[in-house]
């Protein structure tokens, strides 16, 4: 494990085919790599470069720009506690301190058992539900310290496995388009005309 597996390469090609230029698939493929290995390995980045026609340095340049990509292993559960204004007004800092105590790690740290990594996150678009957090990008709203402890217990006991996959998997549902329905992505240079329906007549 490191380069993408055969199945994932097949999936990668399917994703690439949806874009007029394969470079556009870089971020989706990085997610795929992270789903495969739990983090993004150098081998995977080199492999992605081959698939989308970029140098490894370019792929790494893109990958390292984005928060979600990790370049060494993290806990099975990545807990992101929002610390931006709305959550801060509603006690995010207290929640973070509690979380640090409960898990026995500082922000950015991973518990000894490799189960949990704790991070401070920026605004998660749940500002009305403050303070909020995400576990592997699944939300928990208006979290009290007591509720946080319950959450950690449930996760550790595997009681939430159905809802929350291990770190690396974000969406469990993928876009799938059957060839017969797909119009097909065309490189921009191969298109010069207006779409057929732009002829002043109704399309139906």
């Amino acid at each position: 494990m490191a380069r993408l597996t055969e199945d994932n390469v097949r999936l990668a090609r399917e994703i690439i085919a949806r874009y007029p230029r394969s470079r556009s698939a870089t971020i989706p493929l990085l997610h795929l790599a992270q789903q495969q290995d739990g983090y993004v390995t150098n081998e995977a980045m080199a492999h992605i470069g081959e698939l989308v026609g970029a140098t490894s340095a370019e792929v790494y340049g893109t990958a390292s720009f984005y928060e979600m990509f990790k370049f060494e292993p993290v806990g099975k559960y990545l807990i992101n506690i929002c610390g931006t204004m709305s959550c801060a007004l509603m006690g995010a800092e207290e929640l973070i301190h509690h979380a640090e105590d409960r898990l026995g790690v500082k922000l950015g740290g991973t518990t000894a058992d490799g189960n949990f990594t704790l991070e401070r996150a920026e605004c998660q678009a749940a500002c009305t539900e403050a303070p909020c957090l995400q576990v592997n990008y699944r939300y928990r709203y208006r979290v009290t310290p007591a509720e946080f402890d319950g959450l950690v217990d449930d996760l550790a006991a595997g009681r939430l496995d159905a809802e929350i996959p291990a770190h690396g998997t974000v969406a469990r549902v993928r876009q799938r388009v059957t060839p017969d329905r797909m119009v097909g992505a065309v490189p921009p240079e191969d298109v010069t005309e207006a779409p057929v329906w732009m002829d002043g007549k109704a399309a139906l």
Partner: peptide, 8 residues
């Protein structure tokens, strides 16, 4: 393109 900006 063997050198590149990294991080943010």
């Amino acid at each position: 393109a063997l050198i590149h900006f990294t991080s943010r």
